[in-house]
Design a protein around this nucleic acid. Structure first.
Lengths: 233, 233
DNA sequence: CAGATTAATATGTATATACTTATAGTTCAA
DNA sequence: TTGAACTATAAGTATATACATATTAATCTG
């Protein structure tokens, strides 16, 4: 089985993939260690390491020091989906982009938001409701809370000129975020804002972003009917 | 600025991140090349390469040969979301899992499906409708088409014992897939199958998977109200 | 025999060196 | 002035070597 020459990490990766797919190496099974594979493939261990590391990152292999490398039992397929800035998404489709601020005020958030923002009771946040339009038609509206303490400069920013999301992306570095995707049924408010019928199913993204010290912002994006989010693996 | 010692790729990465976040290196701007950074950080070029490559993969840097490395202008944040096998997802919540096959037949698919499956007109596929239940309550139902030509053995598989998805994951290696997430409004059929009210908003995942030669399967998963898909970055 | 100690081992990482490859920029020719 | 040919450059990769680190397995103790 000393198959020819696999002297680039891509060819090594391809060969390992082939063996996994052909069940030569079965799920849960340990595969030979890096040193052995390097000899068999006629390449350096670092090359094997690169190939296996990439496969482990994509979820097909499980690796542990000393224990070794095994074919993943239940390969969790990971789709990486790009989170777009709404303006780019709309303009990318060749449509015109516009947004309007429906309301902007300082207020103490309801309990649910406060929990997500991890702020003390009574602390006021900036509450912003924005509608984004594609070719003049409602596309998505965002109900956003911003921790003004974590975001110096937001108070004086002109959020009519640049949407809060864009302003934040451009000005406030963040370290992590979480995303929830779901569906909701349009009520009177959504129907009015998005110019759709009450009772329609709407796609919803909830997103929080944070840095080391604070939760920066949490936003709920409710999309007009027909929105589709797409990704490939 | 010859800042101390950055002699592991993680510390190099952290320092580069710091400079990006602090705007020392601004979006769109070229950063010094690997060799220069290696000298400045007091480490090998390979170490810098590892750090920058990781940052490029996560979308914060743009790299091109000869041109160099620049800070990404619009950092596309990528969330990697794990595509779960439904049984694991349900059992992971501590609920009991059960599934039933509502219908299974060979049929020529409608045009939309045929386009996705890339089959010739008249070719019959396996059409499978399955309901998955959590603690006995409808959780999601799947409307699936399988290219039997691409999937040897599926005809004789007992899809009552093991769901089609699980059978496929365990038996048919695939190379790529695409995913679409959207919302729909429950019609009479969805309301009946999912035991929900007509007019409720439902979360929908459409997914196709393929290997080198064929589109293997395409499935539309319609979730009962309340479903939320979550991910972090 | 339970629990602590030690050894063995596979992956993880760092480094110097060398070569490859894509491509931006320049030069040259039609 | 366009475009083809060339060149210089920065990232990309491969390799040998060395050492670090996590973790299993074996061994030693009480």
């Amino acid at each position: 089985m000393s198959a020819g020459e696999f002297n680039s990490w891509q060819t090594v990766q391809a060969e390992v993939l082939r063996r996994i797919n052909s069940r030569e190496w079965r799920p849960g099974e340990f595969i030979p260690n890096e040193a052995e594979l390097a000899v068999e493939f006629g390449c350096a261990r670092a090359t094997v390491n690169r190939a296996l590391r990439a496969l482990a990152e994509s979820g097909l292999l499980d690796r542990r020091r000393k224990a070794g490398t095994r074919v993943a039992l239940n390969p969790v397929r990971k789709a990486t989906l790009a989170i777009p800035v709404i303006r780019y998404e709309i303009e990318g489709k060749g449509q015109s982009y516009r947004h309007t601020v429906l309301s902007k005020q300082r207020a103490a958030p309801p309990a649910g938001i406060r929990a997500r923002m991890r702020t003390e009771p009574g602390v006021k946040l900036m509450h912003l409701v924005t509608l984004h339009l594609a070719d003049g038609k409602p596309y998505v509206f965002g109900d956003r809370w911003i921790n003004t303490e974590a975001v110096p400069g937001i108070e004086t920013a002109d959020l009519n000129a640049q949407s809060a999301n864009e302003w934040l992306v451009a000005n406030i570095p963040f370290e992590g975020g979480d995303f929830t995707f779901s569906a909701m049924t349009a009520g009177p408010r959504e129907a009015e804002i998005l110019a759709c019928k009450e009772g329609e199913g709407l796609f919803v993204i909830e997103r929080s972003t944070w840095n080391a010290a604070h939760v920066i912002t949490t936003v709920r994006l409710t999309f007009a009917p027909g929105y589709r989010m797409h990704t490939e693996i």
